[in-house]
Structures are given as C-alpha cells and as structure tokens.
Amino acid sequence: MPQTGTGGRWRDRLPPERAYKRRAGAAAPAVEQDRAAGGRNQRNVDLGDGRLARASITLRLYRSTRRIRAYLRWSQDGRTEERYVCEVESDSRKQNLVEAWRQARAKGFLAKDALPPESTASSLGVRASMRGNRSRDTKPELLLRGLLHRRGMRYRVDTQPIADVRRKADLVFPRDRIAVFVDGCFWHGCPDHYRPATKNADFWREKINGNRARDAETNERLTAAGWTIIRVWEHDDPAQAANQIENAVRRKRDSAHLDRAKADAH
C-alpha cells in the first residue's frame, strides 16, 4: 500500500468508488466498522467522567484534490462530533477503513480501557455486551419500533405471544400471529460478534448454549402454534429489519383478506 497521506496516488483521475463507497449487499455498517477496527470494543472514544462513545470512520472524497480523507465520528450529548484522522490511498474501502482505524489508534484518538478486577468477562467487548443487556427497550429495539410506528404499524411490546409458551417477544402482532425477537449479540451467540469467553469459560459456554437452545425451542413451539417468528440481531440494519417485518405483516394480512373473500363467495 502506498504511503498514507501523501496525497499523490490519484493525480490524473478520481479514486475509484470502491475505495470509499459502501457497495450494495455489503455487511451492515456496524459489522463493517467492527471488522475494520478489530472488534466493537476497539471503537470507543473517551467522553470524560468515565463515559465512552462508540465511534465510526467516515471516508470522504474531495474531488478538487482527488484525495480521500478519513474522519472519526461519534455522538456526544445529542451532537455529532467529528475528528480528522488521515488521508487513505488504497483502492479498497475495506483496507482504507482498516488503515484509518490503525491511524486513529496510533494517534491516541481512541479510549484505552481495562477490565476491572471483579469483572467475570473475558474481554472489554464481552463486558460491554453484558452491561448493555436489558430485558426490553434496548437501543436497537427502540430504533426498530420507531421505524415501524412511523410506517403505521401497530404492535404490542414485551408480550407473551401465547399463554402456553411463557416467553415474551419484543414485538408482537397478535392479529397477524407474528412475533419479533431482537437478540443481543453476546447473550444469544451471534455468529458475527460472539466470541467464547476465556474467563469462567465453562460457565459462559453453558449459559450461551442454554440461551441458544431456549431460542430454538421457542421458535419450534410458536411455529407449531401457527405463529411466524422473526429474529433480528442487534447489529442488523434497523431499516432492513423494518422492511422484513412490514413485508411479513402485509403478506399475512393480504392472505387473510383473500381467504375471507373466498369464504364470502361461497
């Protein structure tokens, strides 16, 4: 890779779009940033007073100079903050993100943290996931609910779909018999972000495997009762998840309307 920040890579042409633009069908933005940074816990900036914010890298093309600049962005007290990191010069967006995160870390822009001695977590990422776990009203869940509500969708929150299965879904459409679960990456063993614990490994392996088995059993029992199950990972794009849910609800309603029309015809 050419020396970063020299600004001389593209003298007679613009950089290719693949060097800075996200491609269609790429991994979700959060997943892309996690991979480039080397893990979700590697993306924090220090807000002071013991607070951390999750940051991301934005790549911008400056057409007049034919340069791509990387900026670190995060949210603080309701405002979006930004800090220039470096110029990047690879033809690959992935490599440019990796280089920008490396530069941000080298320049001391990212927070350095350590596990407290009493923590049972095996890493900072695991601890953040554990501490962020809530039974309801998580940030991904609130984002998803807001998108669906603005589309005119109405649902119940944190509700048992059926009495025989004593487990609550995060969103329930009772008339359409659709149950939505927004699963946390750590507690439900996300294939992209879950990493087996090394501290108290047997305990956590048993815990996560138990949660996975419980999820599978819940799916089977609700499906057998005639329900449609939709599971969304906390890292999934909320807009794509909202599309999936809305399409499922509308298909159910169209099918029910057709069945009623056929019954009336007879």
Rank of each mutant, 00 (worst) to 15 (best):
K199I: 09
N209W: 07
R250H: 05
A169V: 06
D34T: 07
G125E: 01
A248K: 04
E118K: 06
K207Y: 11
R43I: 00
R212D: 02
V180W: 00
A24T: 06
K112A: 07
S75R: 13
R11D: 03
I57T: 07
D158R: 07
A100I: 13
L171D: 01
R150N: 11
T223C: 12
R251T: 03
K262P: 08
A19P: 14
K168M: 15
A201N: 06
R35T: 14
L148K: 03
K207D: 01
H257D: 12
K112Y: 14
Q76H: 13
N133H: 15
R18Q: 14
W227H: 08
R156P: 10
R102S: 13
L52P: 13
R150H: 12
D113V: 15
R195M: 09
D164I: 08
L143H: 10
L59V: 13
I229Y: 03
V45T: 05
G189W: 03
S90V: 09
G125K: 07
S56K: 13
A197E: 07
P117D: 15
A37Q: 09
A30D: 06
E234L: 03
K107M: 12
A197Q: 08
E220L: 11
L147G: 03
R127F: 10
V98W: 11
G108K: 06
A261H: 12
L171E: 01
R195K: 15
I178A: 01
P140M: 03
A265E: 09
A36P: 11
T138V: 02
A225T: 09
D49P: 10
P116C: 05
W233N: 02
S64C: 10
D237W: 03
N211Y: 10
N133F: 15
R67M: 07
D192L: 08
A213K: 11
V182I: 04
A114D: 09
Q240T: 04
N41S: 14
I178Q: 00
R69L: 08
G8W: 15
R167M: 11
R214W: 05
T6P: 07
L144E: 02
E81D: 10
L142A: 11
A242R: 01
F186N: 00
L110F: 10
D254C: 04
K252A: 09
R67C: 09
R69N: 10
T228H: 15
S135R: 15
F203S: 05
A248D: 00
G8S: 12
T6F: 11
K252Y: 08
V249R: 02
G125H: 04
V88L: 08
L148G: 01
G184L: 02
L52R: 14
R154P: 07
E118P: 06
N247V: 02
A169N: 09
D183P: 06
I245F: 02
R54S: 13
Y155K: 04
V232D: 02
T159P: 08
P238R: 01
F109T: 00
I57V: 14
R105D: 10
R131P: 10
I230K: 08
A121S: 11
E81S: 11
D170Q: 04
D259L: 14
G48E: 04
E206C: 07
A169G: 12
